[in-house]
Simulated scan of single mutants.
Amino acid sequence: MIAKVITGKSFGGCVRYLLEREQSIVLDSSGVRDYDIKAIIADLNAQRKLRPQLSNAVGHTALSWSNEDRDKLTVEKMVEHAKEYMNKMGIKDTQYLTVLHTDKQHPHLHIVYNRVDNNGKTLDNFNHWHKSRKICREMTERYGYHFGKGKAQVNRQALRGNARIRYAIHDALKSTLAKAKSWKQVETSLREKDINIHYKYRSGTKDVQGVSFEKDGVKFKGSAIDRKFSYNGIDRQLKENNRLEMQLAPTPKRDFLAKQIREVLGVNTGQQHHHDASHGSGLLDILLQPEYTAPEPDSLDDAEKRRRKRKKRKNTQSRGISR
């Protein structure tokens, strides 16, 4: 179960889009005369006049399920899920219309509601992208519905409005962060795709605590595009890219050490040694091994035994000469 959340200005355009097709059925409604398109539009516009300064009064959510869930769903269950979703989203005490569409393979319905509630107050939509994803995930788990395979499976060509822009930013960020190692590189790469970055600073300081991305005049918080695109998430990815580059970068230290050892052994100078050249190369290879450690000296006990043995042999020889 997923939700596409949209806000708009025209109830007329939204309602006509939902109902002027053969494959649409009104499942549920409140506060509107749902038997006629013109009457629905008139009722919604009458209530929005309670707060005329609110331009984006149209709330529109498309709830979709995987085609694999078709056998688990009934029309009654879809209506119940729509009501539960609205309640959790805080869409209460306002006009709404729930419409089933059967023009796609997967089960889905649309909810259009008035952001001006029955008391003339505005329904808050702060952080509604993130809130909606959390609710859908919780409901999907609780009812045992199929989890999709992520944003890679979304049909970009079918997207419209803010959803199309959001996914365009998502895809641009994904490709940019695969190789960027600094925020400056991120800014440059996104600017080439007509995407601007806006930083949010902690009050009275220069400490960044958030980031937003803007394209075609529409702005999204990084976490609203994807959790990994929050400021902290992107910063961690940039640091990880730098760490991996450092690991893969060639280090001249070992080559320099090899050159010094070859010069000492005369491998590169053509000098002749009393030992075989292959012996020198073998020694060089051993010394250059990262695991190489010099052999430990003999223990003091063994060294002392050899010293006494030599001394005894020397004394014996001395006594023989004196005779």
Rank of each mutant, 00 (worst) to 15 (best):
L177P: 06
A178C: 07
K179C: 01
K179M: 01
A180V: 07
S182W: 12
W183A: 02
W183P: 01
K184L: 10
K184C: 01
K184T: 12
K184E: 13
Q185S: 13
Q185A: 15
V186W: 09
E187L: 02
E187V: 08
S189N: 14
S189F: 04
L190A: 06
R191M: 11
R191Y: 10
R191K: 15
E192R: 12
E192L: 08
K193S: 12
D194I: 00
I195M: 07
I195P: 07
N196Y: 08
N196R: 14
N196M: 10
H198Q: 13
H198P: 00
Y199P: 09
Y199D: 11
K200P: 00
K200H: 09
K200E: 14
Y201V: 05
Y201T: 04
Y201S: 05
R202E: 12
S203G: 01
S203A: 07
V208Q: 09
V208C: 05
G210T: 03
V211R: 01
V211T: 03
V211E: 01
V211I: 13
S212N: 09
S212T: 04
S212K: 10
F213D: 08
K215W: 03
K215N: 08
D216E: 15
G217H: 08
G217R: 08
G217F: 08
V218T: 15
K219M: 13
K219H: 00
F220A: 07
F220W: 06
F220Q: 08
F220L: 09
K221T: 04
K221I: 00
K221F: 02
K221Y: 06
G222D: 11
G222L: 10
S223Q: 14
S223D: 12
A224G: 02
I225Y: 03
I225G: 04
I225K: 03
D226W: 00
D226Y: 02
D226S: 12
R227D: 13
R227F: 04
R227N: 13
K228A: 08
K228P: 00
S230L: 06
S230D: 07
Y231P: 07
Y231N: 08
N232I: 10
N232D: 14
G233V: 09
G233W: 07
I234W: 06
D235F: 05
R236I: 02
Q237C: 05
L238S: 05
L238W: 02
L238T: 05
L238F: 04
K239P: 00
R243T: 02
R243W: 04
R243Q: 08
L244H: 07
E245V: 08
E245T: 08
M246T: 00
M246V: 01
Q247A: 10
A249C: 01
A249I: 00
P250T: 03
P250R: 03
P252G: 06
K253I: 11
R254V: 09
D255Q: 14
D255C: 01
L257Q: 12
L257C: 06
A258I: 14
A258S: 15
K259G: 05
K259H: 11
Q260M: 15
Q260E: 15
I261H: 03
I261K: 02
I261N: 03
R262E: 15
R262I: 00
E263P: 00
E263V: 01
V264E: 10
L265Y: 06
G266I: 06
G266W: 09
G266L: 06
V267H: 09
V267T: 15
T269G: 06
T269R: 12
T269S: 15
G270C: 04
G270S: 05
G270N: 04
Q271M: 11
Q271S: 14
Q271L: 12
Q272F: 07
Q272A: 10
H273F: 13
H273W: 14
H273T: 15
